[in-house]
C-alpha cells in the first residue's frame, strides 16, 4: 500500500515533520505558559506563531563554535545522527492509507532499531565535548536510554502478538474493531513511559538536567548544532506520539473525518499530554529512574507479554 507518488510523500513527510516540530516548540511554550498562568511568546506574528522562525534566524546567526578541546569530527557528527535517526523512523509511520513512505514488514523493529541508534548521538555528543558535565549527561543518557529501550521493545510485543505482524499498517488494520489500548492498557502505559525516557523529555530529562549539569550532553553546543539537538528532540516527541497513535489508538481510523485528520487529532492529543507531563512533574533522581526501569517496568512488561501470549494461545487458536 505504497502511495503512487513516493517522492511527493517523502517531501511532504519531511517538511511536515520539520514544520510540526517547529510549531511544537511554539505550542509547548504557549501551553506551558497557559498552565503556569502566563501568556508565553505572543509578540512575533499572530499569537506569537513566528517566534520559532525568529529563534531559528537567531540560531543561524550565532557563532558556529567547536571548542578547541573537543573531538572535532565526532562533535560535528553527533547532532546529525539524532536528526537522521528520528527522521528515518518516520519512514515507517503510516499517516493514512496510502500516505506512508515505506511499508516495511518489520516496521516495529525498524523503529526500535532507529531509536537505539539515536543513543549514539547523545553519548557521542557528551563524549566528544570533553567536558565533565557533558560526559556525565552522556553517561546518564547511555544508561537511561539503553535500559528503557529494553522494556520499550517488550511493551510493544503485546500489540505485535495481537496483530500478528510487525507491519504498522497491519497493526492499524487489526484495530478495526477495538483499539489496542483496551486489551493492552498496561503495554500502552509502559510504552508511553519508555517513549518519554527515550526522547529525554521531562520528567526523564536526566541527560540534560539544567539544574545540575548546565545543559548535560549539549553543554558545549551552540548555534545550529544545538538547534539540531533541539529540533531532534521535538521530532522525537512527534515520533513517539505518532507511534502511540498507530500502535494503541487505531492510527488513522475514525468515523466521518478523513483518515489523516484523525491521525493528526490523536497525535496532537498525545503531544499535548507530553507537554502537560513536562509542566506538572518533577525530575526523579537517577538511581530512582534506573530502579523503576529495571525493578518495576521490566517485570511488568514481561508479565504483560506473557499474559497476552497465554490469552492469545488459549482463546484465539
Amino acid at each position: 500500500m505504497i502511495s503512487p507518488y513516493p517522492a511527493v510523500t517523502l517531501i511532504a513527510v519531511l517538511f511536515g515533520a520539520l514544520t510540526i516540530a517547529g510549531g511544537l516548540v511554539w505550542a509547548e511554550r504557549r501551553l506551558l505558559a497557559l498552565w503556569q498562568d502566563r501568556y508565553g511568546p505572543n509578540r512575533v506574528g499572530p499569537f506569537g506563531l513566528m517566534q520559532t522562525l525568529a529563534d531559528m534566524i537567531k540560531l543561524f546567526f550565532k557563532e558556529d563554535w567547536v571548542p578547541p578541546f573537543a573531538d572535532k569530527w565526532v562533535f560535528i557528527m553527533a547532532p546529525a545522527i539524532v536528526m537522521f535517526t528520528v527522521l528515518m523512523s518516520f519512514v515507517v509511520v503510516p499517516f493514512a492509507p496510502g500516505i506512508i513512505i515505506s511499508d516495511l514488514n518489520i516496521a516495529v523493529l525498524f523503529f526500535l532499531g532507529m531509536s537505539s541508534l539515536g543513543v549514539y548521538s547523545i553519548v557521542l555528543a557528551g563524549w566528544a565535548s570533553d567536558n565533565k558535565y557533558a560526559l556525565l549527561g552522556g553517561m546518564r543518557a547511555a544508561a537511561q536510554m539503553l535500559s528503557y529501550e529494553v522494556f520499550m521493545g517488550l511493551s510493544l510485543m503485546g500489540t505485535v502478538l495481537l496483530a500478528g505482524s510487525f507491519d504498522l499498517v497491519d497493526i492499524v488494520n487489526a484495530q478495526r474493531h477495538m483499539w489496542f489500548v483496551v486489551p493492552q492498557f498496561l503495554g500502552f502505559v509502559l510504552f508511553m513511559i519508555a517513549g518519554i525516557a527515550e526522547t529525554r523529555r521531562l520528567p526523564f530529562d536526566l541527560p540534560e538536567s539544567e539544574s545540575e549539569l548546565v545543559a548535560g550532553f549539549h553543554s558545549e553546543y551552540s548555534g545550529m548544532k544545538f538547534g539540531m539537538f533541539f529540533v531532534g528532540e521535538y521530532i522525537g516527541i512527534l515520533l513517539v506520539s505518532s507511534m502511540i497513535t498507530v500502535l494503541f489508538f487505531g492510527g488513522w481510523r475514525g468515523p466521518v473525518l478523513p483518515p489523516i485528520v484523525w491521525y493528526f487529532i490523536k497525535t496532537c492529543f498525545f503531544l499535548g499530554f507530553f507537554i502537560l507531563l513536562r509542566a506538572a512533574l518533577p525530575r526523579p533522581r537517577f538511581d530512582q529512574l534506573m530502579a523503576w526501569g529495571w525493578k518495576l517496568m521490566l517485570p511488568l512488561s514481561l508479565a504483560n507479554l506473557l499474559v497476552t501470549g497465554a490469552v492469545k494461545l488459549a482463546f484465539f487458536h
Binding site: 505558559a33 498552565w35 498562568d37 502566563r38 501568556y39 502537560l276 509542566a279 512533574l281
Partner: peptide, 22 residues
C-alpha cells in the same frame, strides 16, 4: 499523586493569567 498533580496543573488552563502585557 502523580495523576492528581497532572489534573491540578491541567486545571490551571482555566485560571486567569497573571501576566501584565507590558
Amino acid at each position: 499523586s502523580i495523576i492528581r498533580t497532572l489534573w491540578d496543573v491541567f486545571l490551571h488552563a482555566f485560571r486567569k493569567r497573571v501576566t501584565i502585557q507590558y
